[in-house]
Amino acid sequence: MTLPGLLAVIPFPDVDPVIVQLGPFAVRWYAVAYIVGLVFASWYMKRLVSTPRLWGGRKPSMTVAQVDDFFIWSVLGVVLGGRLGYVLFYKPLFYLAHPLDILKMWDGGMSFHGGFLGVVVACLLYGRAIGCSLDRMLDLGAASVPVGLGLGRLANFVNGELWGRPTDLPWGIVFPHDQLQVPRHPSQLYEAVLEGGVLFLAVRIATHRYGALQHPGRASGIFALVYGLSRILAECFREPDAFLGYFGGFLTMGMILSLPLCAVGVWLLLRSRHEPA
């Protein structure tokens, strides 16, 4: 099967998903992307809590030392929530029949929406331990995690997974594991720009120019709304999972899971208007 514009496609870059292989132990770009994203998030959160003008006279949500302690909680929330989210949202029947495959993190990967819920639980539990409200905890996370999301999408591209729908546009790419071998949208790169670039800038402008951290829930509301809309847009170019396909002829699972996230974002933004500055 061929599509118009086949001669104009961009060759898929020959990048090995495995950086180093030492016997059974492999260091993958996907894992490095998560580690770098989490380290950046921790560093950025420290910068935020150490900048008094961003809080308008209010006490920051956490101290620098508490950010260090929260790092472990956030890692557990992302990894456990992301993996369980993929298992429950995408292949519940398969993993019910093959429970040991849940441990194969490289097979299927993780779900953002599950990771998001995992981080919410981590924020709730750690926030209670230090006497900080959930929305103020989430605000710090919202400002710091988009870079990690963008890196994760770049790792998806290197892995040649989660590719886009067929296209005749000149930047279409033929992915090596695609049985049809047709040019497709590099939807992973679209998502990297939206999640790692647009989302980060949107929240940063809100926190640094418009004092969003002075209104609990505002930064996280912007994050949830912008991410949800960005994901829905990206899903218009992304090939749905073969084992799920479309719901109602046009909706994908990513779209369905993003709709309540948008609703939560709107609710947080409306709620933040009534919080004391």
Rank of each mutant, 00 (worst) to 15 (best):
M255A: 02
R209P: 04
S230F: 12
E191V: 05
V264C: 11
S133H: 09
H208T: 15
P17D: 10
V266F: 14
L7F: 12
V226Y: 06
P92Q: 09
V145D: 00
A8T: 15
G114T: 07
T252W: 03
C123A: 15
D168T: 10
R238S: 02
G265T: 09
L213M: 13
E191C: 04
L7R: 12
L151Q: 02
V145R: 02
G108I: 01
P92D: 12
S220N: 09
R128W: 10
F89L: 14
F94K: 03
I222L: 15
F175K: 04
K59C: 04
S61A: 15
I10A: 10
I256H: 06
G160R: 05
L93K: 08
G254I: 01
Y126M: 10
I232F: 11
D135Q: 05
L93Q: 11
Y30A: 00
V120G: 00
I173E: 07
A33D: 07
F247H: 14
F71T: 15
Y210P: 01
V36P: 00
P17G: 03
S61D: 13
A31V: 12
G57W: 13
G108Q: 03
V158F: 02
W55P: 06
L76F: 14
R153S: 05
S50F: 08
W73V: 01
P166Y: 10
R165M: 14
L140P: 08
L259N: 04
F157R: 02
A65S: 12
K104A: 13
L251S: 00
C132H: 06
G82V: 07
G77K: 07
V145C: 03
K59T: 15
F200I: 02
R231F: 12
D241P: 01
D241E: 14
I130M: 02
A242P: 08
L22R: 00
R165C: 01
